[in-house]
Amino acid sequence: MTSVAIKGSRYRIKPEEADKYGPFNRTFLAEGDSWMDASAWNQGSLPEYLAREFNNLGRTNLIVNVSTSGHTLTRIVDMMTDDFVWWLDQQEYDGVLFSAGGNDFIDAARDTPPGQGILHDMHGQPLPENGDACVRQDALQDLVAYLNTNFEAIYQALRTSRKNANTPIYLNCYDTPVARDAPAFRNFSGPWLYTAYTNNGIDPSLWDALTQRLFEEIKDTIQGWTVGRAGVVAVATTGRMDKADPKATGDSFDWVNEIHPNKSGWKKQVPAWLAVLPP
């Protein structure tokens, strides 16, 4: 008996590569961003490390992984009818493992002209007392409202599906990184927070507190998705990983780059999921 995590694109064309290890006691669908897909080219993913731990526990489970690194919640919703909904129609799952929202926050801080996203343009401004002064509250509220609307679309797709109307969805709440110049690929992917803060002229002395604030907002937003929605579970993923050295430009402690776990980081994340997933 063996637990398997397999990419959905592979499972569609070669299902026998996974099914030969069955029959499976439980089957999960993983959807979302790089926290569900892969943190770097040479690293594993949360589903992979979950499958390893399932094996250690003597469980025979299948995780079909349809997530895509870099995807925002908005992008997942835009592609929903082409991918997520199709997979929901294939079979009944014991749970959907879902990670989204983090990229939306980061993009709103990084991929806009200074002062036009969720951060103020602090160039030439006096040094504020704390990082809160760097956050545009109106833009932040608009972003949260927008994400809430998009998650409702995901939730309704699940609840109106023919085979998974009662399937629980488990939400990744991320963990808090350290803003530092540690991209996944230089000049291609990242850094993320480091770029956002430097673009907006935010003093490095405020970076740690500002990052804490933003990731508290991300966690609170995701935990808010559980309110009034049956079968929606926020996984307690925060506060589990050791922070990286802010001067490190690569792998450091539990982080392979600025915002993604490395192998030891994934291992620390797995128990949070095992605590809520069905045995």
Rank of each mutant, 00 (worst) to 15 (best):
S3R: 00
S3M: 07
K7W: 03
S9E: 11
S9W: 09
R12L: 15
R12K: 12
E16R: 03
G22K: 04
P23N: 03
R26I: 01
F28D: 01
A30L: 06
D33A: 12
D33H: 03
S34W: 14
D37Y: 15
S39F: 13
A40P: 03
A40I: 04
W41P: 08
Q43K: 01
G44Y: 11
L50F: 12
R52H: 05
F54K: 00
N56H: 11
G58E: 08
T60H: 11
I63H: 07
N65F: 10
N65V: 03
N65S: 01
T68D: 01
T72S: 15
V77T: 05
V77D: 09
D78C: 02
D78F: 08
D78Q: 15
T81K: 14
D83C: 04
F84W: 06
L88I: 11
L88N: 07
D89T: 03
D94W: 15
D94N: 13
V96I: 15
A100I: 05
N103K: 08
F105E: 03
A108F: 02
A109Y: 00
R110S: 07
R110L: 10
P113Y: 07
Q116T: 11
I118E: 02
I118F: 10
L119W: 09
L119I: 06
M122N: 01
G124Y: 12
Q125T: 10
P126M: 09
N130Y: 08
G131H: 12
D132A: 09
C134Y: 13
R136C: 13
D142K: 13
L143N: 02
V144F: 07
A145T: 13
N150F: 05
F151T: 07
Y155T: 14
Q156C: 03
L158I: 15
R159L: 04
K163R: 14
N164S: 09
P168Q: 05
C173M: 08
Y174K: 00
Y174E: 05
D181F: 10
G190R: 04
P191W: 08
L193P: 13
Y197C: 06
Y197L: 15
Y197Q: 02
N199C: 01
N200T: 09
D203A: 13
S205W: 02
W207T: 02
D208K: 14
T211E: 08
R213D: 01
I218M: 10
D220L: 07
T221F: 12
T221P: 14
Q223Y: 14
G224K: 11
W225F: 11
W225I: 00
W225A: 00
T226S: 01
R229D: 00
G231K: 07
V232M: 06
A234E: 05
T237N: 12
T237H: 05
G239P: 11
D242K: 10
A244E: 00
A248F: 09
A248M: 00
E258P: 12
P261K: 14
K263L: 02
G265L: 09
Q269T: 06
W273D: 04
L274W: 10
P279T: 06
P279Y: 01
